[in-house]
């Protein structure tokens, strides 16, 4: 048996599964999205999505919430990743376990935890009221802030681990070299640490952004009726309104815009220098 044939045979089972449960259903979904209520071929669903300001606002809200989540995970995650990079192997392991441990619990339960904490009677509002810093409870839930808090909690581990992995690869004598050449710690961070961690940052941003765009549970639980995002509306169209074609079209709108934005981002980042420095 020749080599190529044996490789084909080896990947055949997984290819068959992918084809059966992923590609074919997706194709069927796509055909479904091209039907009107009378099951005739029509572009009406897509035309509705691009013409109705409601759906454009929906798309923009989904992207906006995802971008805020990316920003929060990046700003909160980078210091943690740096801490891990500077720590001993033992401490790194402990921190990694601490970061991943919450993922052992269903995201539904974690989000309910946040609902308890952030609610009007939650300890954050109670404490702030008691300290007299505010005179009525802050609205931390059922708005975009609540969704961003929930998503940040859900996805920050991906950001931290992606950045930490790329920080591990930086030769620490580079920091010494920068210092002896006259760079303060802040200067060293912006001229050495940050640029050299870019592959991790890019991976983290891409992961967290795609995950946030398609997140359903957290926006549904922590956004309430006021922060509906595409996955939530698509769900409603399919499960409640029973407008499957529109739900399918929404799903493809989400997929298309995620792919477009992620590849635009990659284009933007992967300059000539980036490729020279980071590709082997």
């Amino acid at each position: 048996m020749n080599r190529r044939l044996s490789i084909l045979l080896l990947i055949a089972p997984s290819m068959a599964v992918l084809l059966g449960v992923f590609l074919i259903p997706m194709l069927l979904m796509f055909l479904l999205s091209l039907q009107d209520e009378a099951e005739q071929f029509s572009l009406a669903n897509y035309l509705l999505l691009v013409q109705d300001p409601y759906y454009l606002e929906l798309l923009w809200r989904t992207i906006r919430v995802s971008l805020w989540t990316v920003l929060c995970t990046l700003l909160l995650g980078f210091p943690v990743a740096m801490f891990m990079a500077n720590a001993s192997g033992r401490v790194r392991g402990i921190v990694a376990v601490l970061i991943l441990a919450p993922h052992l619990i269903s995201v539904v339960i974690r989000n309910f935890g946040w609902v308890v904490i952030l609610g009007e009677k939650g300890w954050i509002n109670e404490t702030l009221l008691w300290l007299g810093l505010i005179d009525k409870p802050l609205r931390l839930l059922y708005n975009e802030l609540g969704v961003v808090i929930g998503l940040t909690d859900a996805f920050i581990a991906y950001m931290v681990l992606a950045i930490a992995t790329s920080l591990y690869g930086i030769d620490t004598s580079l920091y010494k070299a920068a210092a002896i050449l006259g760079a303060s710690r802040i200067r060293t961070f912006f001229s050495v640490t940050l640029p050299l961690s870019l592959p991790g940052v890019v991976a983290g941003i891409t992961l967290v952004f795609s995950l946030s765009m398609s997140a359903f549970v957290t926006p549904a639980l922590m956004g309430g009726s006021s922060v509906k995002v595409i996955p939530v509306i698509a769900y409603e169209q399919i499960m409640s309104t029973l407008n499957w074609p529109l739900g399918a079209a929404l799903a493809f709108l989400l997929l298309g815009s995620s792919i477009l934005l992620v590849s635009l981002f990659a284009r933007l980042v992967e300059t000539k220098r980036y490729k020279e420095v980071f590709t082997a």
Partner: peptide, 15 residues
């Protein structure tokens, strides 16, 4: 960074 020294390292340490 305030000592105004030059240093060369074993591992080159070029950026």
């Amino acid at each position: 960074y305030k000592r105004e020294l030059g240093m060369v390292f074993q591992t080159y340490s070029l950026f």
